[in-house]
Amino acid sequence: MRSFTFLILSGLAAVASAHFQLQFPEPRGVFNMDNEPTFCDGYDTVASNRTSFPIGSNGLISLNSEHPQWTATVLITNVSNPTSFDNFTQITPFFQESIEGLFCMHFDLSSTNVTSAGGIPLQNGDNVTMQILYNGGDGNLYQCADLTLSDSATTSSISCTNTTSSAFGLSAPSTGSLLGLAGLALALL
């Protein structure tokens, strides 16, 4: 009986400690499992070294999931130093995957309705911050990447495995707050 109880408790502990790591674009800082449930994994200031990211159809997002089934969404802001969730706009619908390990999705930022601070579509040279909201069933987790958009940026050297069948770059939802959408992520699991 003790070994059965130990197995159950060990399994629960493993599920509760599973996380994800953003692989590309490069996250703001080194992965910090303890801070992952907080804004930008606990990194509150913009990285001094922004990642050059394709503005068109050559973009991709790669992450490592430690859950066999999970839900995520992509948020973005053009605020120069975002400090809260309120600075971000959701630009993909929540999507659910059943892939543990490396995952990649094609991402066309030019097809979103995100605009620069002047209200014009995003363009070469704009700085933005991307935040991934991920939920593997044990709570919302967040990681951020600071980007400089570039017409000449390439992702050809990035290994893209377990690719989703659809490319993202969709318009942001017209209703719902980030807190409401985060609750929806939990409901989807």
Rank of each mutant, 00 (worst) to 15 (best):
S157A: 15
Q143M: 11
L184E: 11
C144V: 06
F31D: 03
L63C: 04
T89G: 00
H106C: 04
N81L: 07
L170S: 15
P121Q: 14
Y142Q: 12
S111K: 14
S165K: 10
T148G: 03
M105H: 02
Y142H: 10
F31N: 03
N135V: 01
Q69L: 07
D41P: 01
T73F: 01
V15L: 14
P121L: 12
T38G: 11
M33I: 13
L122W: 00
Q96E: 14
Q23E: 11
M1F: 08
L141H: 11
S152P: 03
S156A: 14
M1V: 12
T154V: 11
N35E: 11
V46N: 00
T5E: 07
S152R: 10
N58L: 13
S110W: 13
N87L: 04
L12W: 13
R2T: 05
A187I: 06
Y43S: 04
T71N: 14
S57E: 09
S17P: 00
P27Q: 03
G139W: 05
D151A: 07
S84D: 08
G11N: 11
G119R: 07
S152K: 11
N78L: 11
N64P: 02
S177I: 08
A72N: 06
S174I: 09
S65K: 09
S10Y: 10
C104P: 01
H67Y: 15
V79T: 09
P54D: 05
H106P: 00
N64Q: 14
S156N: 10
N135S: 09
P25E: 09
Q143G: 05
W70N: 03
E26H: 14
S62P: 01
A18L: 06
D86C: 07
L75P: 01
L188I: 12
I132V: 15
L9Y: 14
T129N: 07
F39I: 01
L170V: 12
F39C: 03
F24T: 07
L188G: 02
F103P: 00
N124C: 08
G137R: 15
D86H: 10
L179K: 06
T115Q: 02
Q123T: 10
P25R: 05
F53G: 06
F4L: 14
A153M: 04
T71K: 09
G125Q: 08
G42S: 06
Y134C: 01
E26N: 13
P173Q: 10
S157G: 10
V74K: 02
G139E: 08
L188D: 03
D34G: 02
D151E: 06
N162C: 05
H67W: 15
S57H: 05
S110A: 15
N140P: 04
G137N: 15
T83N: 09
V15H: 06
N87Q: 07
P37L: 02
S65N: 08
S80A: 08
L178K: 03
L63P: 00
G183K: 07
F94K: 04
A172L: 04
P27W: 01
Q123A: 12
L12N: 10
D138H: 12
R28K: 10
F107E: 04
